[in-house]
């Protein structure tokens, strides 16, 4: 009898923890995706975005979520199976949250073509699902004090890609991005490049945040700069090219113009990459 009662309690506990996890997921999705849900360009993209590019974005999101789940997850995940399950749940939360918020804001109406409604929700579900996944890490992640874990090098690079993707999804669809690139001269772009790399390195190594990185005392500073910051910046630029291409922002521009807009977007993307190393 006692055993049965304990196991019933355990089941109830597990259920409660799961529901709490879902709640944190919704909170994370709302916190992190609301700026995008309330951005005009994101609504327009619902009918202007090329369908094959949207599909590619949705597909890229899947391994990204699984990777994030493996790293932080709703529950402490240890196997890839559990990580896939958590990723599916996060994607689901992202879709439902986008649907509810877009409907509540009056952006989805019955007289719209189905394709437009689906595209709008699908587009918003990408940042919302990343937000849902991060909700767990941001809102009440129980640090288990003394755990020593090792992140493989490619894991660090993938986390930087995730952070860069999240921030550039926020900013790439806005018109301000292109206006900035049109207004700035090449000298400005070079300055932004140097600033991006300096801030990336500073955030992770120099400024003592919780989650910051340290070097062993005998390691010179440029070791980490070459091994982590420079690849991170290249990843941020690559993610910028990817998001600009997804949102059809590159157009028929010349190489210099494309480079300028990539550098402008690379600024938030590189900060996102640095933040991912601190938070995740």
């Amino acid at each position: 009898m006692a055993d049965a009662a304990t196991s019933a309690n355990d089941t109830k506990d597990e259920f409660n923890r799961f529901v709490t996890g879902l709640g944190r997921g919704v909170a994370g999705a709302l916190f992190l995706a609301l700026p995008m849900l309330m951005t005009m360009e994101m609504w327009y993209l619902g009918f202007t975005i090329a369908r094959e590019r949207l599909l590619l974005l949705l597909l890229v999101n899947i391994p990204l979520l699984i990777l994030l789940a493996h790293r932080i997850g709703f529950e402490e995940t240890f196997t890839w199976r559990e990580a896939s399950r958590d990723a599916t749940i996060a994607y689901g939360i992202g879709i439902v949250t986008s649907l509810v918020v877009l409907t509540a804001l009056g952006l989805l109406r019955g007289d719209m073509p189905a394709g437009e409604i689906i595209a709008k929700i699908a587009l918003q579900s990408v940042p919302a699902s990343i937000g849902a996944m991060l909700g767990r890490s941001q809102l009440g992640h129980e640090e288990t004090g003394d755990d020593t874990k090792e992140t493989p090098y490619h894991g660090e690079l993938l986390m930087m890609a995730a952070g860069a993707l999240f921030l550039s999804l926020n900013i790439a669809p806005t018109d301000e991005m292109m206006v900035l690139a049109y207004k700035m001269s090449i000298w400005h772009a070079i300055a932004v490049t140097l600033l991006s790399m300096a801030l990336m390195h500073g955030f992770v190594y120099a400024v003592s945040f919780i989650g910051g990185h340290e070097l062993e005392p005998e390691t010179p500073w440029w070791h980490a700069f070459v091994r982590f910051t420079l690849p991170g910046y290249v990843i941020a630029l690559a993610i910028s090219v990817f998001t600009l291409w997804i949102f059809e922002r590159l157009g028929d521009s010349s190489a210099v113009e494309i480079m300028l807009s990539v550098i402008v977007l690379g600024f938030p993307a590189s900060l996102g990459a640095a933040a991912a190393r601190l938070i995740l």
Binding site: D146, K149, E214, F228, P231
Partner: peptide, 30 residues
């Protein structure tokens, strides 16, 4: 490779050669 302990991460002093190769390649690109 990065070791995480009590919220702090520490970069290894003896990295794999692939880390240097990636870094070098990125440095060339930038």
């Amino acid at each position: 490779m990065t070791k995480s302990q009590q919220g702090r991460h520490r970069e290894r002093h003896d990295p794999h050669w692939i880390e240097w190769l990636t870094g070098l390649f990125s440095a060339l690109l930038v």
